[in-house]
Structures are given as structure tokens and as C-alpha cells.
Amino acid sequence: MTAKQDKSIVRSLSVARLRDIGLVLFIVILSIFIQFRNSQFLTISNLNNMLINACIMGILAVGMMMVIITGGIDLSIGSTLALSGMSAGLFVRDNPDAPVIIAVLIGIAVGMAAGFVNGLLVGKGGVLPLIATLGMMNVYRGLTYIIAGGAWVSAHQMNDGFKAISFYNILGINSMIWIAAIVFLIAYFFLNYTRTGRRVYAVGSNYEASQISGTNVDNIQILVYTIMGGVSGLSGILWVSRFASAQGDTAQGFEMNVIAACVLGGVSITGGSGKVPGVALGTLLLGILRNSLPLLKVSPFWQDAIYGVIIMIAIIVNVMVKRTVDKRNLQRRHI
């Protein structure tokens, strides 16, 4: 029994790895193509820009991955991001002398609170994740507008410390990249090396079984949504700091990009599977696309269509790779 299980784990791991390799190949080919069209693409400064721009999406995608692994989804992250970013922005505006860390904590706390409410609705309230987060998406967005009172927080109203959060180099690398890397690492260890992390997978792959085996499913759900809220709050801070402006309509519709990054990275929307490295690759692919389409001097009217087609190709290639691998595995078993 255990041996068999091990084998299946090994096989599924190799599928995930092969898919990652497929994605890497896709990214490499795409990059070479872009480089031929515009030699500015593979320069340090452009890659730096691209990574920084992909950071927020990456951080959110890690949270979203955990939610999707449990079989859920969170559509409210764009609103949560705006709400926590706005809360922190307003705090900085009204208390210019307060330490920056307080603003950061406020942002993350607001995000976590929003995520906790989502988690409660899903875990304890029995509301399906899509509905719960769709509803709360409206609520959080409305709250953002209301606390802001129709105003924006502008660059000159923020102190330098707050703006430096996203604009600080450690060892020559931008702080946002560091933060994203740390989030990725923590998520990797949490999901692979802690008992709670494994339970997240268990809840998604077999809800009933994990319930019977004594996992408190509700609590795991509340946990992942709270984490999602927390990373949304963090992203909100980074967003406001990087663009030096807090607006009510910040990150509207951003959730769809994040979900796309997850699924491109091999996270199954039905739950139970998904790996941190895959999500990193998915984010990277979307980041490259967003960065390179303007560089290629593609007409702005063509950008969306091309973006959509490439995502579609990536998804289908992904499936093809998986099918081939599965078939080969099946053949090997017959022998």
C-alpha cells in the first residue's frame, strides 16, 4: 500500500517536473524570439523592471495557489489589496511621523481580517468560495471608496520611509524582489515540510477523507484565506509604495491575472495539486508577456488578443505534455 502510494507520488512529481520543464522551454523560446525583435529585452535594467513588476502578481499567486489547492478560489484579492493599501496610505497621510512599520502592519492586518472573513464564510458559513469572494469583492471595494472619501493619497503626502519600502536595494537587488523571494521560500517550506502544509493538500485532494482522518477542514480553509488576505495586504502596501499613490480603483480585475498565473503554473483548479516553483514560472511567463508586448512595438490594440492567444497556447501545450507523459507512464506500467 505505502509502496504503491510512494510510486504514485513519484510519478505525479515527475509529471509536475516535466510540466515545469515544458514551461521553462516555452519561456526560453519566447525570450529568444523577443530578443531577436528587440535587443533591449535581455538587458539587466529591463529584466530588473520586469521582475519588479511581476513581484506583486507572484506574491498574490502564492496565496492564491494555497486557496486553489484547497479547492477554493478568491476573487476578492484585488479589492482586499486596494482596501489594505488605502488603509495604510491614509494612515501614512494622517501620521507622517509615525514609524513606517506601523503602516505596514496596518495594511497586513486589514488584509488578514478581510481574508479571515472570507475564510469564515467558506469554512463555517458553508458558502461556496466563488460566491463568498464575489460578494466580498464588492463589499471590500465599496469600503475602500468609503474610507478614502473619494480622495487619493498622493506621493507628496507619503513620507520617504514608506515610499522606500519598494525602492530599496539590498545587495544591488530591489527590495520587492527580495520580499517576493522570501514569500516564495516560506510558502515552499510551509507546504512541503510542515504538517499543516500537507493538510492543505489533503483538504483539496480528498475533502471527506481528510475530514474523517481528523483534519479540521474548516480551520484549514480559514487559514488559507487568512494567508491569502495577508499576502494581499502585503501586496497592497507594496503597490501603494511602488506607485506612490493610493486610489480607490487600485488593482480592479487583478484577480484574473493572478488566477491565470496559478493555472499556467500547473495548479489544478479542482484542487489538490500545485507547486510553488510552477507558480513562479507561471508568474514569470505572464510577467514576460506584459513586459515584452510594448517592447515589440505591437500595436496597443493587438496586445490583448496576442496575450490571450499565447495564454491559450500555453494551456494547451501544457495539457499535451501531460497527456504524453501519462501515456508513457501507462505503457511503462504495462511492461
Partner: peptide, 24 residues
């Protein structure tokens, strides 16, 4: 070039960066 940032912060920033890269 006429670039479009869609009045979104993130898109306006990446469009500006692309302008800088493409037209040194």
C-alpha cells in the same frame, strides 16, 4: 509613439518603462 496606460498605475508604469527601453 502613442502608448496607452489605460489610467491604471501598473500598466502606465510598464508602458513608460517600455518607452525608455525602446527609445533610448
Amino acid at each position: 509613439k502613442v502608448a496607452y496606460g489605460d489610467d491604471l498605475r501598473d500598466k502606465s508604469v510598464s508602458e513608460t518603462e517600455a518607452l525608455l527601453q525602446t527609445y533610448p
